[in-house]
Structure formats: C-alpha cells, structure tokens
Design a protein around this nucleic acid. Structure first.
Length: 576
DNA sequence: GCCGTTTTCGGCCCGACTGTTTTCAGTCG
C-alpha cells in the first residue's frame, strides 16, 4: 500500500519527463532521453501506485523501468528528491526548457542560444533577437529571428503547451466536418483519425484523411465550410485550418491505394506506431504512412484498407481505442468490446427533485425512447449544497413518486435510488432504515476533497447498502485533476465488499478513466456505465462512458448494467 | 537507459519540412 505522503504516479511521471527534457538539453544521446520518456509513460499509465511498487521492489516489472530508474525512484522516496535532477536543475535554467516549447526551437538550438548568448528564458531571448545577436550564430539567420519573435508574440506569457480540447467538443465539429466533406461530389472516402478516433479524453487537434477523384473540390469545400474559421496553409495534398470553435484541423488527401496506410499512421498513437514498427523490423518489414517495405523483395506494399495493413503485419485489426501500446500488439484475437447497444440500464441520473431539469416521468420516458430497460432515479441527498437538497422526508415522497411512475409506465422499470454524499467521516447522510427502502444507492464524494477521500470511499464500499461509488476520482477534464486517491485501496475495498465502481459518462468526467477502469476489471470489480444525466438530452452521456470502457478493454460482461435488472439485482452485495 | 525466438552488448521507427546550407542537422508529427 502507498504511504499517504507518497508522490502520485502523475507527479513521478512529471519528474521523469523533466529529467528526460533536461538530459536532452544537456546533450544526452537520444535513446537515453527516450528511455526517460518511456519510463514516464509507463509510470503515468501504471494502474497501481508506483511508489508502493518501488517500496516493494517490483517497479522494474513496468515496461521501460530498469535498474537505473528504479534507483532514482528509490532516492525520491527515501530522500524526497532525485540527485541527478537537482544537479541538472542547477545547471540549466527553467526558462531554457520553456523556450524549447516554441515551434522550431528544440533542445539543440536552445542550448546554443544559452551557451553562446546567455539566453535563459523567453525574456532574454526577446532581448537577444531585438539586438540582432541571434542571427550571428551559426545555424541561425534573419529568418530564425523573425520566426522566433512571432512565436514569442503568439505564445503569450507562460509558454504553456498547446491547449487540449475535450473529446465531446472535438467530435461535435469533427464529425460534422467529415459528414459535410463526404457529401462533396468527387470525394471518395473521408475519415477522422488521430486521438479523436481513439476516443481519448482530450485531443490537441483533428486529423482528417480523405481520398477523392477530385481533390480540388474537396479542398475547396474544406476552405469554404462554415465550420472552418480560417485556413492557414494548404496545397494539393491537404490543408491546415482552424474550426470556429478554435480547434486545429489537418486535412490530408491521399491516393486510394494507400488510404489504409495513412489512416493507420494518423490514427496513432505515436507509441502504438513505434511499437508496431519495432516489431515489424524484426520481421524484415518497414512500416511508414506510405506503405510496408519488405526487405526480402525490396517491394513496398500499399493498402486501401486498414485491416489489410494489420493483416500484413500478422496482427488482427485493432480497434482504435486500444492503440496506446498497452499490450494490444500481443493480442492474437481482439475481445468484443462493450458497445452502446449492450447497455440495458442507466443507474445514475437527476430530476427536478435536486438539480436536474426534468421530472421522474420525463426522464423515464426519455430513457425508454433510448431503448433502455431500466433506470434508477438518483437525486442528490440531504447535504448536497447544490440545487435542492433532498431531505429524508422528501426522499420518502420521491420514492412514492418513482413507484407510481414505475406502475404507470410499460416498457421501462423505474428504480428508486439516491446519490448519497460521503461525509468527511465516511458516513452517509441518510439513515440506514431509509437507504434500505431504495433499490439502488450511489455513494459519491462531493465535498472536502482534501479530507482523506481514500478512507471515506473505502468506508462507503464497506457500507452494506452502497451499490456503487459514483465518479470515484472526482476529476473534471481541464478543470481539476481529481482527489489524491489511493486507487489500489479503493479497488481492493470494492472487490472485497462487492461494490461496483462507476464509469461516469459525463464528458467532463469520464471517471473512472480508462487505465483505472481496466485495473479495476482486472482485479475482479464490476463497472457501471452511467450518464449522470441532469436533463433528458444528457442521457446520451453513456456514450462517452462506453468509449472510456472500450479504452479500458472492457467487454459487456465486465459492465454490470449490460445485464437485465433482475440479474443485476441479484449480483448486488449481500444479495439484498 | 532499456532490453533480448537474431543479442547480456549493440542495437533501439519513419518521413517531411525548414533554414541554413552547398549536403544536412534539427525539428516536428
């Protein structure tokens, strides 16, 4: 088990990334730098607390963590710092790392600016450009000064990395754009690639791959689309633009016979492609976006279909959601991942009784229209603090209302539930004799995020009347990272008690996220995919939950609410 | 720095673009 003061996986991964960046600035060979970045990825995606693995001496089981990185992590845990990192930080100013985020300025050239001109950050760089000292350096010229100045002006004060966009917002415009381009006469195929196709939580930009008998018509349609605000550059082979909503779009037009190669390449992830290519080299094959070169024949093969690219490499077609280099290349057969149509029920939603906008009846009807067999009405509990608090007396009325709607409506079972707050003491804010009246109990943390959420959630798991933990980590994409949670202990508590864990489908949450949901499943925990709908329209949020579940390698069997309600009811803890 | 049905040492994905260069290193995706 992790110590309360241990750094999180994310914090450890950030340190390894920083080490890689600093070693790169220091002129280390590229593969050593890559080793730190691979190590950072392994730590960031590790399902268990890496600090605990370091203490247990098992951290080298992670792919990419060897003896040297283990030693550095041991130092981090025993002394609180990594000596090599401290030394490099003393040698290379933080501002130097910042300016490498400027487009066109990498570690080599940044280091040259530092060593020759004393540039230690964006301010010093701007001064050096103003004095025309940069153009005097070998490898730099007037054009370099011009471009760097423009980049400094565009970057703003903090030189932060590129903004990332939530998947729902990216897909909304991305799918509309793809649909519009498919309608253009002379256009053959158009597909969304990149992290949007992999259904990642967030995307940096949109990649669109197309084939067309008439590429000019396609490009003209792209330029004039009312979804696109402006097109920065473009030729015959593609264009780069920005949507009205501020998301960059790369459009590539390719020959039909290599559409499969391009789609595979631009779907990524980068780590997936690197792993594919490394494995291919061992078989005498060289994979690129243009084809697969066979050493034996010297011939390069192109494929119109992505399935054939994978087949040529001896692999089954791998669903995009799995392409993260998390073991998918060892699959000989791809599991049938859960699909939206597999969900029979939705066990987390709100009505006007708390902070929703629709009645019990309206929510039930909308769910029935969506093809669901059952729903649980789970308004917030007595101490929620947002919208209407549902007192114990009010909940009794609400249960009666739910029973009445359930009696009235055919074709859908309406269950009485609640989303109960987990207090700072780990207790729930309704008495047990009321909770036992409910068909379904979601328990969630909504307050005091820093007040030992692990202990509180474990306590909720051990409560005999709690069915599922709602949005277990509390993260909100682009807003907050979630509570400092020991997921190992939560998963163990859920497994031991028979509590389900939620994949909350709100596109701002998608919580649990994919890595943790996969770890929970592997530990033997059943997941619930819920909408957390506050309006009838957001019942469709389960779609985002399914995307996360697929990225977690989940099958329908791994998801509790793919079962008919009588079967799921019997699976609850204690068979209550 | 990691890793092993080619290896415990010698490898470690692929290609395009850019600006500065007369053949390429650095950067990017």
């Amino acid at each position: 088990m992790a110590d309360a003061k241990d750094p999180s996986n994310a914090a450890i991964a950030d340190l390894l990334d920083e080490l890689g960046d600093l070693y790169e600035l220091d002129g280390a060979v590229v593969h050593r730098v890559l080793a730190y970045r691979n190590g950072a990825k392994a730590v960031r995606e590790a399902p268990r607390a890496v600090a605990a693995m370091v203490r247990a001496g098992t951290v080298t089981e992670l792919p990419g963590i060897g003896a040297t990185l283990e030693e550095k992590l041991q130092a981090l845990l025993t002394t609180g710092s990594i000596p090599a990192l401290e030394k490099l930080r003393g040698k290379l100013p933080a501002g130097l790392l910042q300016i490498t985020r400027l487009p066109g300025l990498g570690p080599k050239r940044a280091r040259k600016l530092h060593d020759a001109l004393g540039v230690d950050g964006p301010v010093a760089l701007r001064d050096a450009i103003a004095a025309h000292r940069v153009r005097e350096l070998p490898g730099f010229g007037a054009k370099s000064e011009e471009r760097l100045l423009a980049a400094l002006d565009a970057a703003g004060d903090d030189l932060a990395g590129p903004e990332r966009h939530r998947l729902d917002r990216a897909l909304q415009v991305g799918e509309a754009l793809v649909a519009a381009l498919r309608e253009v006469p002379g256009v053959d195929r158009v597909e969304l690639a990149g992290s949007a196709r992999r259904r990642a939580d967030t995307v940096k930009d949109l990649d669109v791959i197309a084939t067309a008998e008439d590429p000019a018509a396609l490009l003209a349609a792209f330029r004039s689309s009312d979804l696109i605000a402006d097109v920065e550059r473009g030729g015959e082979a593609g264009a780069h633009g920005t949507t009205q909503t501020g998301i960059g779009v790369d459009l590539r037009v390719v020959a039909p016979d290599q559409f499969g190669n391009l789609l595979q390449h631009f779907t990524g992830s980068k780590a997936h492609n690197v792993a594919i290519r490394e494995a291919a080299v061992k078989r005498g094959l060289h994979v690129s976006e243009y084809g697969i070169l066979d050493d034996a024949t010297g011939e390069s093969e192109r494929f119109a279909r992505e399935e054939d690219v994978y087949a040529r490499l001896g692999l089954p077609w791998i669903p995009p959601e799995l392409r993260e280099d998390r073991g998918e290349l060892r699959l000989t057969e791809v599991p049938r991942l859960v699909e939206p149509g597999d969900l029979r029920g939705d066990l987390h939603m709100h009505t006007t009784a708390s902070d929703g906008t629709a009645s019990v009846r309206e929510m039930a009807l909308a769910a029935r229209d969506r093809g669901l067999e059952y729903v649980a009405i789970t308004d917030h509990s007595a101490s929620h603090g947002f919208g209407n608090a549902v007192s114990a007396d009010r909940l009794r009325e609400l249960i009666a209302e739910v029973r009445a709607v359930d009696d009235e409506l055919d074709g859908i079972t309406v269950l009485a539930g609640s989303e109960v707050n987990i207090g700072t003491d780990g207790a729930l804010d309704y008495p047990d004799e009321l909770l036992v009246e409910l068909d379904w109990v979601v328990a969630s943390v909504h307050t005091a995020f820093t007040s030992d959420p692990t202990r509180r959630i474990v306590a909720a798991c051990e409560h005999p009347l709690v069915d599922v933990i709602g949005h277990p980590t509390g993260r909100k994409l682009g807003q907050r990272t979630g509570y400092e949670l020991d997921l190992d202990r939560v998963v163990e508590a859920a497994r031991g008690s028979g509590t389900f864990l939620e994949i909350n489908g709100s596109p701002a949450r998608r919580d649990l996220h994919d890595v943790h949901a996969r770890a929970a499943r592997d530990a033997g925990v059943l997941l619930c995919i819920d909408s957390d709908a506050h309006r009838t329209e957001t019942l469709e949020n389960t779609l985002w939950g399914v995307m996360t579940a697929r990225r977690a390698w989940l099958t329908a069997q791994d998801v509790a609410n793919t079962r008919p309600w009588p079967e799921l009811r019997a699976l609850r803890k204690g068979g209550r």
